[in-house]
Design a protein around this nucleic acid. Structure first.
Lengths: 145, 145
DNA sequence: CCAACTTGGTTCGTCCCACGAACCAATATA
DNA sequence: TATATTGGTTCGTGGGACGAACCAAGTTGG
């Protein structure tokens, strides 16, 4: 069977929506002179102080990419590298006070922006899309070794 | 009232999902040595031959950004600039044969990848998320002048 | 009919982002 | 202790996006 040259309606709709969301987030981040990736990083650091390794994995970046990202964020005073106590090799990343306040502001802004986007939905639909999105992003259950 | 420092469950879930989708698309595009933006551009050109202006708007880029994008795509033989017959200033962009075949391949791959992502959903949930996504990405009805 | 404006694109300089390869220091292993 | 392995950084490359300056083709107004 020949591959379809047109996307399925479902795929198309979902992909379009993801682009719409990303566009909003990018605009919002740009308004604070941040890239989308930096926005994500700040979000990821809100309640963690991961190693470079862990953060890179979480963001889907290589370690060299992350190194540069953190360089820039550190240069802006949003983030700080701290040595790990246990292992002399590993470096942990944490928010500075300035970074924490920026993260809070941005979190609120993201909420507002996405809420606005979801505004046309009924309460029922909101609940449904939440459930579905959660389901799709939940890590698949893996049997412990 | 103080702004929340944590995103709402709904917003968080939806944003996470959008990142998951983008990551899949980016990986897929990278596998064909293309950027996400070029992937989008190819998709947009499947059934149109827009002016630079129109394409830039569709992709949410400035005209200078688009100029560079099309330069590179043209350099790879995926796309062609053609002069507009009516207006000597405007340039139209269209797929080459190679670009058309790449677009077809990629469309199929996107379908497969996103279908896989949506695999855990029931048929009902798929229908629901399609409806919701459509609703959210549909342009708001504007009264004709 | 021609000068002044507008419009559609390109070019240029700048910065961010992401990657792989090479490298270095600290730890783990044999 | 010699040899991996691991965690990060550095460097070079290339795409991506932007604004400002620019240019050519159309449009408008006197």
């Amino acid at each position: 069977m020949a591959p379809p040259t047109r996307p399925s309606a479902t795929v198309d709709a979902v992909v379009q929506l993801s682009f719409a969301i990303q566009a909003r987030l990018a605009t919002l981040a740009a308004g604070h002179d941040l890239s989308l990736t930096q926005l994500r990083a700040l979000g990821a650091l809100r309640d963690r102080r991961p190693t470079m390794q862990a953060l890179a994995e979480h963001l889907g970046l290589t370690k060299s990419s992350l190194s540069g990202l953190i360089d820039r964020a550190e240069g802006r005073g949003l983030v700080r590298r701290v040595p790990d106590e246990a292992d002399g090799r590993t470096v942990r990343v944490e928010l500075t006070d300035e970074g924490r306040s920026a993260a809070a502001t941005l979190t609120a802004a993201v909420n507002e922006a996405v809420d606005l986007l979801l505004e046309p939905l009924s309460a029922t639909d909101r609940a449904t899309i939440t459930r579905i999105a959660r389901r799709l992003t939940a890590p698949p259950p893996s049997p412990p070794p």
